[in-house]
Simulated assay, not measured.
Amino acid sequence: MLFWIIAAEIAFWIVIIAGLFTRYIWKRNRLSIFFFLLTPVIDFALLVLTAIDLKNGATASFAHGLAAIYIGVSIAYGKSMIAWADSKFQSWILKKPSKKKILYGKAKAVYEMKMWGRHLLAYIIGCSLLGLMIWYVGEEIDPLMRVLNLWTIVLVIDFIICLSYVIFPKKEKK
């Protein structure tokens, strides 16, 4: 199962790079959109492979739970990951200056809370998939429950960090 998760991650970045390459180097915008639209196909393939693995009698493992996390994160953060890759491609390959501005104060706090909101969305999607796996497997769900418990702790820690930007706003260095 871990192999399929790694393969999905590699495939994700291959189609993103292919999309950026076709958009900026070959100037084929429609083809680049095709590549970007393959990212949810990769997520769906991983979901199907996970279900097939469990259907064929595999014991639920941490890797199955990790697949649920991967899919949740990919759906919730997919657009922002593509935007990040686009920005890096433009600055590294096309040598365009970076447009990223450093945020401070309230703007930084709002940004961090939005990012936590995406984390929460990923968590909801991933936990829904974990719940379906737990329901489907029925027995031997301890590895899946450990994934759920660990991710819950990570989500709470991420919230505390985000909240710290609200309570102690990042100040601009002078």
Rank of each mutant, 00 (worst) to 15 (best):
A76Q: 03
P97M: 06
I14Y: 10
N149T: 13
L47S: 07
N56V: 05
L94G: 00
S128Q: 00
Y70C: 06
A7E: 10
S91D: 12
W116M: 04
A85H: 07
G78C: 05
Y77M: 06
A58K: 07
A107Q: 10
V15K: 06
W84L: 14
L132M: 15
Q90D: 07
H119S: 14
Y123S: 10
W4K: 10
W116D: 03
L129M: 15
I82V: 15
L54Y: 04
V147H: 09
S164V: 01
I10Q: 09
N149Y: 13
V73C: 08
G72L: 10
L130V: 09
I160S: 01
V154L: 12
I17S: 11
K114W: 14
V156A: 06
R23L: 11
E140I: 05
L163K: 02
K96Q: 14
L148R: 06
F3M: 12
W84I: 13
I141S: 10
Y123I: 04
A45C: 11
T39M: 08
W92I: 12
I16D: 06
T22V: 14
I161P: 01
E139Q: 15
I141N: 13
I102T: 13
V73Y: 02
C162R: 01
I93Y: 05
V154E: 01
Y77F: 15
D142Q: 11
I6M: 07
G138K: 12
M1C: 10
W4G: 05
G57Q: 09
K174C: 00
A76M: 01
R30M: 12
I69K: 05
Q90W: 00
I33Q: 07
E9L: 13
F168T: 02
V154G: 05
A122F: 05
I25F: 03
L120F: 13
L66I: 13
L2S: 03
K174R: 03
F36L: 13
F34Q: 03
L121F: 10
K114F: 14
K114Q: 11
V156N: 01
Q90H: 04
S164R: 02
F35S: 14
L148V: 09
W84K: 09
W13Q: 11
F159H: 01
I157H: 04
L37H: 08
A51V: 14
K171I: 12
I124T: 11
S98C: 03
A8D: 11
K106E: 13
M115D: 08
S61C: 09
W92L: 14
I161V: 11
A63I: 01
F36I: 11
K108R: 08
G65Y: 04
W92C: 02
P40A: 11
K170C: 02
A58P: 05
G138T: 14
I102H: 04
F62V: 12
K96Y: 10
S98Y: 02
Y70F: 15
Y136N: 09
K174S: 07
I167H: 01
W84S: 06
K173E: 08
S91H: 12
Y136V: 08
W135T: 14
W116H: 06
L148I: 06
G105F: 02
C162W: 00
P40I: 08
I124G: 09
W116S: 03
S98D: 08
G117A: 06
V137F: 10
K170T: 08
I42N: 08
W4P: 00
L120E: 04
Y24F: 12
Q90G: 00
K55H: 15
S32A: 15
L2C: 00
I141D: 10
S80P: 00
L148Y: 13
I17L: 13
